[in-house]
Design a protein around this nucleic acid. Sequence first.
DNA 1: TATGAATGAGCATTCATTCAT
DNA 2: AATGAATGAATGCTCATTCAT
Lengths: 187, 187, 187, 187
Amino acid sequence: MISTDHSVKEQIVSTADRLFYRQGYNLTGINQIIEEAGVAKASLYYHFPSKEDLCVAYLKRRYEKWSSMLSRYLEGVSDPAKAIVRCFECRSEYLISNDFSGCSYIRIIAEMPQRSDKINQQAVLNKEKQHQFFIDQVKRMKDIPSDNVLDLANTIYLLFDGATVQSQVYRNVLPIENAIRALQKLI
Amino acid sequence: MISTDHSVKEQIVSTADRLFYRQGYNLTGINQIIEEAGVAKASLYYHFPSKEDLCVAYLKRRYEKWSSMLSRYLEGVSDPAKAIVRCFECRSEYLISNDFSGCSYIRIIAEMPQRSDKINQQAVLNKEKQHQFFIDQVKRMKDIPSDNVLDLANTIYLLFDGATVQSQVYRNVLPIENAIRALQKLI
Amino acid sequence: MISTDHSVKEQIVSTADRLFYRQGYNLTGINQIIEEAGVAKASLYYHFPSKEDLCVAYLKRRYEKWSSMLSRYLEGVSDPAKAIVRCFECRSEYLISNDFSGCSYIRIIAEMPQRSDKINQQAVLNKEKQHQFFIDQVKRMKDIPSDNVLDLANTIYLLFDGATVQSQVYRNVLPIENAIRALQKLI
Amino acid sequence: MISTDHSVKEQIVSTADRLFYRQGYNLTGINQIIEEAGVAKASLYYHFPSKEDLCVAYLKRRYEKWSSMLSRYLEGVSDPAKAIVRCFECRSEYLISNDFSGCSYIRIIAEMPQRSDKINQQAVLNKEKQHQFFIDQVKRMKDIPSDNVLDLANTIYLLFDGATVQSQVYRNVLPIENAIRALQKLI
DNA sequence: TATGAATGAGCATTCATTCAT
DNA sequence: AATGAATGAATGCTCATTCAT
């Protein structure tokens, strides 16, 4: 659940979320965050021992936002093949409404190739949840021999990430449309 | 052609190439570059007006490196379907030998969401060359109705980028192997 | 009021005041200021967003210093003509005790012909206060037809600035003595 | 005489003259000079051992420019009182046509309070020539007792410098008009 | 004469973090 | 729980000058 209170901590996380995602983690300074959040610097460090910890909170929040958006897209959808397509359509809206900022997990790994373990773990964890979503849906599909379930899910997952990064690169959703078209031949 | 001389300029570019790719652009400071290149700071700024310009040179060099590696992989390969698979195999070796640092073009865009035009243009240009490679190969394939050429090339391109970023995220080449398997069903 | 506490901010301003006035604004680096003030660089930037803002504080302080010195010179002086002469005598001591560094407002404008608005405005403001002082005194003089008040004040003001810059150029107070002699023919 | 040839040396001096006067000495870098002059850096250092030496050349050139302009203003003027007024009128045009950049000699001293002897000497030398001009004219005036010659010349000189710096500060020629009015009561 | 290339020292500014209250 | 003030280290970049050709 995304907190809607106006506590200092909430102010900090929501501001960091917005800025890290829009500008990137390394290009967003602590000063900008506290300024736009309207809190004191020491308050930030009271709630988050370091910028890295704030980053972990940001990644969790990004998952929450994506997750709740996806839930809305899946309301009333029971067919797993349809659910997968809806997931891609959801990503399309997600990117449009977020200035084509791509996938926060991929980006944080792109920015910090070998630095923080804490951050890396959270990003990979979130990534795995996306992966698992496709596995779950494919498992529910009829007519898919169990031998092929993982292969199909992996292919879909590859198309999903490929579409996400290309949408960021080209700043439009054509790659997602391409992916949906490819998808429809597979499922 | 990658210069192999030992001039100051070459020292700067090759050091920047190594560090930008390994550590990321924003986490690599000018100071580290000149230190490891063994040149004076003003020498760097004599050859490159700004860090951004050095970044453009880095992106060009990355393309040269990838491009020459790919050429070696394609030697003696005339079948376009085979060439596409070789391209994915090449990527596998590229990532293994580069510590799973992913795609420099995607990463630079991930790091600088809305900054420099110069950098963005070079990154997108390089990305388009990858896209064009797949289009060229698919065009050469028999039995592909011309209506489907672009669709197929786009799907391959999505798999290529999906596999690249997932290999970076998970630090192994399984995603590339998954992509090759998906590929073989398509071509 | 000139603060006499020993806070970090006060240390910065008083050191900047001394160095800017003695060496000039452009020849005084932030590094020298923090070194001689004995504070950290980030502390300076905590209190002053930029070197320009510190310059504005310097110009204000210069006015305070001149102003309080002038007040002492005018103690017990009621005759306006005498007050004007005392003002020139005060300038003489001011320059002697400040190594003939001239007028800080004029100098900052001389150093930054078309740069910062913030600085320029403060300098012109301070300059106008000097002008106004002469106008006020002349107004208080008897036997001056009101038609001539501004003309006389302007002439005195010209002598004042002429004497100040010439004292700086020649590094002695003869120009001020010349100005006082000219003055005595006028009032 | 101001050289009108297009030699490298001439290019350098005329560019430096323009930039030093417009922007100030310390705010004008060697790089900007050579760029705008269209010469190589080492060419500048071939002709001028240091930036200071170039500054001396600049000050000499400023004198030549002022001097030739003044000569034009004095053509056909034989009355010394009239000549003095013409000198002030000349200054008015000089400042208007030079963006109210003030007196280059005063400014260079304002910028470099205790640095270079070479520069300081040239500036004071030029300043003394201005002083001497007024002495010469006053000496030629009838009805001035020889005891008073220097006093009167000094007063005029004070008005001249006061008017020059105030014109720079306020960016208009009202101070010069004030000075001329004061002048006319004196001579 | 003239130049392209190289440099060490310095610039103003920002970084994430900590401390005393 | 919250803050204003302080910091050492690093940031990207520019300075006037020199050297080999």
